[in-house]
Structure formats: structure tokens, C-alpha cells
Design a protein around this nucleic acid. Structure first.
Lengths: 343, 343
DNA sequence: TTGAAAGCGCTAACAG
DNA sequence: CTGTTAGCGCTTTCAA
């Protein structure tokens, strides 16, 4: 751009003061209709666009909303890889944010300190925090005046922030009950990480509850952890199951990605699904209905989760004293071809 | 935050002027070591963090880099859905950008006008434009002084911007030649969109070239277009192929997602792959190796594409007069189990 | 080597 | 209703 047009240029062009231009642009009803016209014309003619950086500084509000991803290793790719989950979520978030005139700034949190720094230095109006929430950030974050929405975080702190989640426990319950109803007793639970992933912990609780209700004693030997939700990890676990755990006849995996990897391993070794093994996933990613056999799973509407989360921050930003939101979205059992009666 | 600490607080605390603090913080070597120490101590003690909005305004540089996604409909979800492609890319981009101390602002381009506006009003230092580049933006964008990197755009304008792509034409050629070498002659090409997707056009050229080299006359009846790269669209096309095009024995699809959808449809109707149909995809998404049968495909390193693109903008931002970059990354044929000799 | 002062572009009391 | 003015927090001449 050769020369940026400032509010003063507009003012001059319209023969008024910068203040009046500002009033008109901000919809502050202080200006006569006549001069308002003149100003709007000048804005058009000069093709003026306000400098948002200056606006931010002046208003102490950036109109930017940050999304912080949990960084496992150094890049986001481990998170996105094999995983429609965060992509879907960010779609929902971006959609709402743009509609409301905000911009979306994303960052992988390298360290809790960096994270905090980021919010403050960038003047982010609000923050969406996805996944596990580092304990040590808790106190410091609370000191910030900007609203923070935690998504999928179950911590003792959860009550102090806005919080969006899915009914993970019920999902685990649904999945397991489905298997139980099919006559299964030897049901493995495959988690991403039982301690680090609060979501998986909830699903596990549902799993346990379903077993107990059915009179089955949950056994630690039926619970497995992989490190990341990926096909590869599922695949490797599938092989491990075949070697070390011949008693298992059904698997409830904490993500479809994992479930599909497990399925692949079992099939490669000549096992039939659902005849030999019943498998249930979680999420209902698109591919689940395209796999052979198609995957029985717990569906959650991730796009909507993003929408709800983003809507929450924006509400919190705009009516500062709204009460804390705690939304738990529902899940649904989708029965497909990867589960069948125990034989 | 209760009270933000400003540069003046630090100055007072250290018994110097704000200017000196600024010098030290910006590494401008004008200050005696002694006062420098004092200032740094004060910074530590007060836990001072500069306000980046103010810095941006003052320096006329935001340290933010924008990524603009092509919006087909109104939300990003059509783009991310079923599509690891953009997720991978953004992972690569985010990685580089964060390492260099920039922030990543993302947006779906609602309209060319909005897009332009966005760059100017937000004081974005540089822009990554993914996918098709709206013609009418051309002139206006060129007027911007900020560097713009186009990814996957083949337009007549491409030469005026930095440009990162993959050797799509060679990819198309490799895939088709592979099928030809297996004895296939009736090879369909399934594109996302031949006109709107410049990438697909290139792949088509490679396809055509390979056919010609093999003495096969390309026929328009073997070329198909779907609207979006999705499993569903592939699936529907697969069914169409079965109904209307019984002569076809091999398919080269412009994305793995499409290829897997097609495969599913064919399999459902009792067709064997690769015995009855040979199928080649493009991208090498993770799931391709987990499908049954595993998918032969053209691999491109999308994460790296993001890395290269981001590196380019940053270079361009930091050494303003660097020459335009035009990078074409390589592709690779990955032979798996979805292709076999024609019988 | 240091600091005063004038911006960066916009907003918001406050006066008129 | 309109304009003057003093910031927002930081940078950067320019003079001391």
C-alpha cells in the first residue's frame, strides 16, 4: 500500500474532526444526520479502513480470540495427524468467531509460561483452551480478566472457568453396555492416556459402571493405554492383544482412529470382525462408516462443540458478567457392522 | 489482570527513562552495561511483558502472519472434513511461525473484499494463501507491500508472488504410468474440479501425457468431476462408475479420500480390488495404508509444504527484497495393494 | 550514553 | 451536536 488513509484524512476530507468520524464509525449517536452523511461519503470515497491495531490499543480490546492447543511434542502435527477431531473443532470455532467479527489466533502452547505470556502480550480478548489444562497455569490464569473457556478438560479447577464437554462418561457407558448386551464379558478398554487425558478417564468410568451393572468385575488386565490416538498405535495394540490377551473378545477404544488401527491388526492376522471380535470406537469420524466392516461407535458432534465453545467466549467477552457456562453435550451410540453377538 | 505493568513502570523502577528500557529490550546498543543491568533487573522484578499491540502500532509491524483458506461454503468444515490435507499443512505452518516468534491468524476467506480488508486492517505482516486465488484479488493484492505466498495456486498470476506447490503434473504422470504399466487402458481420472482446482488440472495434464506416451487416446468420457474431496462424493462416483461405465477397469483419483470412497462403493457391489479394479489415489493420508486393501497412491509431504511456505513468508518479511520464491516439491509413487496387473 | 518529546492511528472524556 | 485534548503503550528521532 502506498499511503494508508487515516481517520484524520477522512476528517479533513469531510471537513470535520477525527472525533466525529470515530463517533460515526462506532455508531455513537452524537452526530447530526447531515454530517454523518458527509462522513460516510468521505469514508467511501477514500476507501478508508480503520487500523485495528490502533483500535485495539485505544479500546484495550483486540477483537482477537486465541485457541490454544495442547502440544504434545513440538508441533501440532501429532495432534492433527490421523485426527479429524481438532480440525472439526476449529472449523466450528472459526465459523462462529468470524461471524461475530473476531479473528482467530492459534498457537500450540510450548510451555505454561509461554501460554500465559501469549494471552497477555497479544491482548487476546478471550481464550479457548483445548484439552488438558496444565495445573500450574491455574492460579495465574484465574488472575486474568479475560474469559477462558476450557474444552474437554476435567480438572478440579473446571468449575472456575467456562467449560464445554461431551458426556464422555455416558458415552463409555453406552459403548460398554452395547457390548455387554451382545453377550460379551471379556471387554478391553483402550485409552489414549488414563491420567493425562481427563476425557479418557471419564469414558473409563462409564465403562466400569456398565460392567459392574452387568455383574462383571472390571479387571485392570483389560485396560490398555497407548500414547497418542493414532492408527499406528491402534495397530500395534491390536497385535499385542493377539499375542498376550487371547481371552479378549471385544474392544471399546477411546477413539475411532485407535479402533480402526486395532481392527486392521486383527484382520491381518485372519481374525473376522465382528465374528471373532466386536469393536466399538468413539467420535464417529467420517471414515468409520467407510471402513470394512463399518465401525460401531459413539458419535459426538465436534463441529458443534466448537460452535458452543466459541459462542461461550464471545458471550463472556461481550457481557462481562455473565455467569460461568458449563455445557455437557450429548453423545449417541451408532451401531454398525463391527459388533455382533458373542458366539 | 489487576494492573498492567508498562514500560514506564519499569523505567521508574530502574530510575531511567522509558526510552532506555526500550533500547535494551530491542537490543539497540546505546546503553551502558551498568544501566542495562539495572533495567533488566527491573524487568525481571516487575515481571514486565511488552504490550504487543502497542509495539505493533509503533513499529508498524504486527508479527502476525495470516493464513487464508479457500472457503467453498461458509465454514471451514468442508475443507477440513475427511481431509487431513489442510490440517497437516497448518501444522507445518504453525510450527515454523511459532519458532520465529510470529503468531498465526487464520481465516476463511468470505469474499475477496473481506480478504483484502483483513490483511490491511489487521496489519498482517505476511499472508499465506491456500488454494485457488480469486482473480479479482490479483491487482489489489499486488498493491500491498506485504509478502504473499500462494500455495497450490496455478494461475497466470502465480509468477508475481511467492509460490509453493508440489509436482502435481508429474504426480499425475506417475500414477497413470503405473496403471499403464500394469496393462490398463481404460483408466478413469476423477478430479475434484478441473477448472476451479488448478492442482487437479495439472494432475490431469500428467494423466493425459502418460496416456499419450502409451499410445492411448485420452477420452473425455473417462474424466469425472466431483464437487468436493470427500468420501461421500467418492462413494457416489463409484456407484456411478458401476452403472454407466462398465468399461473402466482402473481409476486414478485426485485424492486418497476420493479413492477410498470409490473403493468402498465398488467393494459393496461385490467387486474385488485390485482384481477387478485398480485404484490409485493422491496424497498418501495415513488411512490409505490402513484401508483394505491398502491404497496405492502418490505421496506428497504436506507438513513440509507448510514448513516451506511459512519459511518463505518469514524470509520475505525479514529481508524485504528477497527475490520471489517458486518452489516445486517432489512427489513419490507408493505402490500398495489396490493396483494389480490387468486380467 | 541518556532522555524529552513527538508520534503510530484511534478513542473518549470534557468543553463549548 | 462538534471539536479539543489527552491518552492507549511503545518506539525513535533529536538534542543534550
Amino acid at each position: 500500500m502506498g499511503e494508508k488513509i487515516t481517520i484524520r484524512d477522512v476528517a479533513k476530507h469531510a471537513g470535520v474532526s477525527a472525533a466525529s468520524v470515530s463517533y460515526v464509525l462506532n455508531g455513537i449517536n452524537k452526530v447530526s444526520d447531515e454530517t454523518k452523511e458527509r462522513i460516510l461519503t468521505a469514508v467511501k470515497e477514500l476507501n478508508y479502513e480503520p487500523n485495528l491495531t490502533a483500535v485495539s490499543l485505544s479500546k484495550q480490546k483486540s477483537n482477537m480470540i486465541g485457541v490454544m492447543f495442547p502440544l504434545t511434542d513440538d508441533s501440532l502435527s501429532t495432534i492433527f495427524k490421523d485426527n479429524h477431531y481438532y480440525s472439526e473443532m476449529i472449523s466450528g470455532i472459526e465459523y462462529v468467531i468470524r461471524k461475530h467479527g473476531y479473528d482467530l489466533v492459534i498457537s500450540g502452547a510450548s510451555s505454561p509460561a509461554d501460554c500465559l505470556k501469549w494471552i497477555r502480550t497479544r491482548n487476546i480478548d478471550g481464550l479457548l483452551f483445548l484439552g488438558a489444562f496444565p495445573h500450574r497455569l491455574y492460579e495465574k490464569m484465574k488472575a486474568l480478566s479475560n474469559p477462558i473457556v476450557l474444552v474437554d478438560t476435567y480438572e478440579r479447577y473446571e468449575r472456575d472457568y467456562h467449560h464445554i464437554s461431551v458426556d464422555d462418561e455416558y458415552g463409555g457407558y453406552l459403548a460398554t453396555t452395547h457390548l455387554v448386551n451382545l453377550g460379551h464379558k471379556e471387554i478391553a478398554f483402550v485409552a489414549h492416556h488414563l491420567v493425562n487425558s481427563p476425557v479418557d478417564k471419564k469414558r473409563y468410568i462409564g465403562y466400569e459402571k456398565a460392567l459392574k451393572e452387568a455383574g462383571i468385575t472390571p479387571s485392570k488386565t483389560f485396560v490398555f493405554e497407548v500414547n497418542e490416538s493414532s492408527f499406528d498405535n491402534g495397530y500395534n495394540l491390536g497385535n499385542k492383544l493377539l499375542q498376550d490377551h487371547k481371552d479378549i473378545r471385544a474392544v471399546f477404544a477411546s477413539s475411532d482412529t485407535l479402533a480402526l488401527g486395532i481392527m486392521k491388526a486383527l484382520q491381518e492376522k485372519g481374525k473376522k470382525i465382528p465374528q471373532d471380535y466386536s469393536i466399538v470406537g468413539f467420535d464417529d469420524i467420517t471414515f468409520s462408516s467407510y471402513a470394512s466392516p463399518s465401525l460401531t461407535t459413539i458419535r459426538q458432534d465436534v463441529f458443534n462443540k466448537g460452535v458452543v465453545a466459541a459462542t461461550s467466549v464471545i458471550q463472556a467477552i461481550e457481557h462481562r458478567f455473565s455467569t460461568l457456562q458449563h455445557v455437557k453435550l450429548s453423545v449417541e451410540l451408532i451401531i454398525r457392522d463391527s459388533t455382533a453377538k458373542r458366539r
